[in-house]
Amino acid sequence: MQRKAGWLDKFVDDLPSQGWFQFLSRHLVVPYWIWRDPKPVLPGGPRPSVQPSESVQRMMNLIMPLKDPSPIGRARAALAISQNVDEIFAGLDNVGTVHNARFLLLDGNICMLSVYDGDFSNYIRDFIATIGSVFDAVMKEVEGGDAMVPTTEHIEEFIDWVCAHDLFQAPDIATDLFNLQDAAKGIAPGSLPHDLRLLPRELILQLHSNPNISLGGGYRAYPGYSAAQVRQKFGVGW
């Protein structure tokens, strides 16, 4: 026989929708767990893999905080892009491994989102070689960017900086978060038992360490093909 729900059951069931309880959770419960069980910041970008379809159509979600997030600063960042359209297309045409790239102004950030094939540092290296001037124009508007201008002379630091500002890509299989968190602490994945019911908490705590993340590794309509294969198939050059 099921126990009938009494007034106390209803009261507790209703707690998550109560403002005071949400306030308490946000300002007391979550900070307590952040203190008890801090999570290392998980690294950005796609995870290393030698498998062919993992090395094509990879995502970069680069979030760069603007020095001046006021409308004036944001307009300057917008200009840095719009004055360099020729440079950007020339770069895309020459690098040849990019499916698409776009820039967004999002609150106080300028964001570069792109889908590319192959190794991350080669991608950045190729881009700097061909459109270093665009990156220079952007970096001048970005916090901590001045030290890397001209980017052609600070290639390795620039790559590290980009890595640090590329969003962590949450695993496509939710439960793999346990393994990624273990790996970041030097624990072999799969060697510790994990209570599935704690997965939501692990995510909350991870979102404290990585406030902005990519939800999964992206959804592809034609997975497994490189930009070069697409162009070759359509006979549009290279």
Partner: peptide
């Protein structure tokens, strides 16, 4: 299986567990 008691549920909420 039984409905969790209010105390079990409250404890879960404090553990950030649904």
């Amino acid at each position: 299986c039984q409905r969790a008691t209010p105390w079990q549920k409250f404890r879960d909420m404090l553990r950030l567990t649904p």
